[in-house]
């Protein structure tokens, strides 16, 4: 499924300074019964966000009006555990287009790239600066520039570069997905398939 092109994102950010945030927290398994990709944002971080009687937990960041924006900032090893792409869908559907962390779990990172959420990996030191800047002023804006591969704290001007391979960068910039690419080399794949022993 093609998605919106990613260029430069300027936004405030929502901080979640917790390590090892697993995809069961991002979207609990009981919400994986859908057969279409819609409405997952309502259940993003469901059990951290709501009490069991469905009342909002006032101390959770998504229920705090001070914090908003299209960038989610998480602690180290964000997105570990289950391969459920629903976690990335929930992040996207809620309105985030970028997740910043000092370390991502592999499958979650790949899922994000496949659906148009940009995972930005920064150093632990720069991640701390981002958390500090938000703590100082929740309205602090950040600029994520895909072409330049930089993330900048706009109030202080401090910035850091991040890695993304040229292929994925091209996809994100143009809103392409891998299936478009693979379908274009279908003949090569069919030829290759003939060489497999089983």
């Amino acid at each position: 499924m093609a998605y919106d092109k990613f260029d430069i994102l300027t936004s405030s950010a929502v901080p979640l300074p917790i390590e090892n945030v697993d995809t069961d927290q991002i979207i609990p398994a009981r919400f994986l019964k859908a057969t279409e990709r819609k409405g997952f944002g309502d259940n993003l971080f469901r059990d951290w966000r709501y009490n069991q009687d469905n009342s909002p937990k006032s101390d959770f960041v998504l229920n705090n009006e001070l914090y908003s924006g299209k960038i989610l900032v998480g602690g180290k090893n964000f997105g570990s555990g289950s391969s459920r792409e629903h976690a990335a869908w929930a992040v996207y559907d809620y309105g985030f287009r970028c997740v910043i962390s000092s370390f991502f779990a592999d499958i979650f990172r790949g899922n994000c790239l496949n659906i148009g959420v940009l995972p930005v990996q920064v150093s632990p030191e720069f991640l701390q600066k981002i958390f500090d800047a938000i703590a100082e002023d929740p309205k602090t804006e950040f600029e994520v520039n895909l072409a330049a591969q930089t993330v900048k704290i706009l109030t202080s001007g401090e910035h850091e570069s991040f890695d993304i391979n040229d292929y994925k960068k091209g996809n994100m910039t143009n809103g392409f997905d891998d299936i478009d690419y693979l379908l274009n080399i279908k003949d090569d794949i069919q030829q290759f398939a003939k060489s497999r022993p089983f």
């Binding site: 994986l32 990709r37 391979n165 040229d166 292929y167 080399i185 090569d188 497999r196």
Partner: peptide
């Protein structure tokens, strides 16, 4: 490896694909 994309991933051929009810419906819809 069917081919290597320059400064990108490998195109990897898959011999066996297992499918279950939870993570497949949106893929079939695609």
């Amino acid at each position: 490896v069917v081919r290597q994309v320059e400064d990108g991933p490998d195109v990897l051929f898959i011999d066996r694909h297992m499918v279950h009810e939870v993570t497949s419906p949106v893929a079939f819809l695609g």
